[in-house]
């Protein structure tokens, strides 16, 4: 028996919004410790890794490890039927071929349940090695989303250059060139507005705007985003989900032909 309950459906809606542009389907691996999903997009350029800890749920029960392959478009349709403030419960029997998603209004006067067929997905799990990143940047998630959106107008690629002074995002194309520099915040009054850089070595890497923009669909989940970079390894873009877990996106850099 698997049962996981969250106080507000809005969190689950935001999580789904953050992954459904990159993935058509995904396998939710459920265990004692929580729910994990790891999946590459169809082109094998980026990877989504979602972790939801069991202690972040209002109720969590997982008697046996369970892998639930879900069509994320179908799940999005079901979640549209929930009000943001509804409680949401995800339930499945062991070895079941369906999952039940139940919504309850705060006053318990409206209860709805939706059944969805599970899928058997070929899982391509990637082993992600521990990496000492040369630069780790923490910055407001809204600012990162704004920069990615703005620079996508100029080029398909954005160059991220990080030094200890700051981080620079650049793009150039037919329209012209664009450079956006963010300095490290001097005095951190409000942590959620800070730009913080931990640098071992400066790094310059090129990434596809299209994917960065897809990652920023997670912006409603977190006030800050963390970018971890190292020469010749994929970028990690991490959004923490308050008291529940995190979503990490990995993106292979573009390399000179």
């Amino acid at each position: 028996m698997f049962e996981a309950r969250l106080g507000q459906a809005t969190i689950l809606k935001k999580i789904l919004d953050a992954i459904k542009d990159l993935l058509n389907e995904g396998t939710f691996d459920c265990s004692d410790s929580g729910i994990q999903l790891q999946a590459m997009d169809n082109s094998h350029v980026s990877l989504v890794s979602l972790t939801l800890r069991s202690d972040g749920f209002d109720k969590f029960r997982c008697d046996r490890n369970l892998s639930m392959g879900m069509n994320l478009g179908s799940m999005a349709k079901i979640l549209k039927c929930a009000n943001n403030e509804d409680n949401v419960t995800i339930k499945a029997q062991d070895n079941a071929d369906t999952v039940t998603i139940m919504f309850e209004s705060a006053n318990q006067e409206k209860v709805s349940d939706y059944g969805m067929k599970l899928m058997n997905l070929d899982q391509e799990h990637l082993g992600i090695p521990e990496t000492d990143y040369s630069c780790v940047v923490r910055m407001p998630a809204m600012e990162f989303a704004r920069i990615c959106r703005d620079l996508a107008q100029f080029s398909e690629s954005v160059v991220i250059c990080c030094t200890k002074e700051g981080v620079k995002f650049s793009a150039s194309g037919d329209v012209g060139t664009a450079n956006i520099k963010l300095a490290q915040t001097g005095n951190v009054d409000k942590e959620e507005e800070a730009v913080i850089i931990e640098m071992q070595e400066p790094v310059t890497l090129t990434f596809a705007c299209r994917y960065l923009n897809a990652f920023t669909k997670a912006t409603p989940l977190s006030t800050q985003v963390q970018l971890s970079m190292c020469a010749d390894v994929p970028l990690v873009v991490e959004y923490r989900i308050n008291e529940l877990g995190h979503i990490r996106y990995y993106l292979a850099p573009k390399i000179e032909d």
């Binding site: 590459m40 082109s43 094998h44 690629s157 573009k254």
Partner: peptide, 14 residues
């Protein structure tokens, strides 16, 4: 123009 690399160039399938 730079070309897009594949993630599996960096991370191995397990």
């Amino acid at each position: 123009t730079p070309i897009q690399n594949d993630l599996t160039e960096y991370f191995s399938l397990v």
